[in-house]
Amino acid sequence: MMELVLTVTAVVLSLAAAGAIVRIARGPSLLDRVLAADVLLAILGAALCIDMAVNRHLNNLMLLVAVSIIGFIGSVTVARFVADRRGQTNES
């Protein structure tokens, strides 16, 4: 049963990562790209969790916490220093 779960979650997470990468490439503003990069990090953390659950080890737990720290620091920093360089509104 675990092989089936691994296959299904691999397909689902690959599709999700592809969607997030498309949004990073297309995203009209910087904040959209930051948000999509955050989602991509969450998908990476989900893949690490599924690896731990299927193979029954805990090696990735520190990596998971480090990934969430990196996502937090990155999105807060970019959001702090983003500036409005456009005149018009509603372009998103």
């Binding site: 999700a16 969607g19 997030a20 498309v22 503003s29 969450a42 998908i43 989900a46 969790c49």
Partner: peptide
């Protein structure tokens, strides 16, 4: 739990692609 948790990621990606604004 694992399949529903993975589907959450897929839902987030679909929302990122289809929703209109930030």
């Amino acid at each position: 739990f694992m399949i529903v948790g993975a589907v959450m990621s897929l839902a987030a990606a679909i929302g990122l692609l289809r929703f209109p604004d930030l």
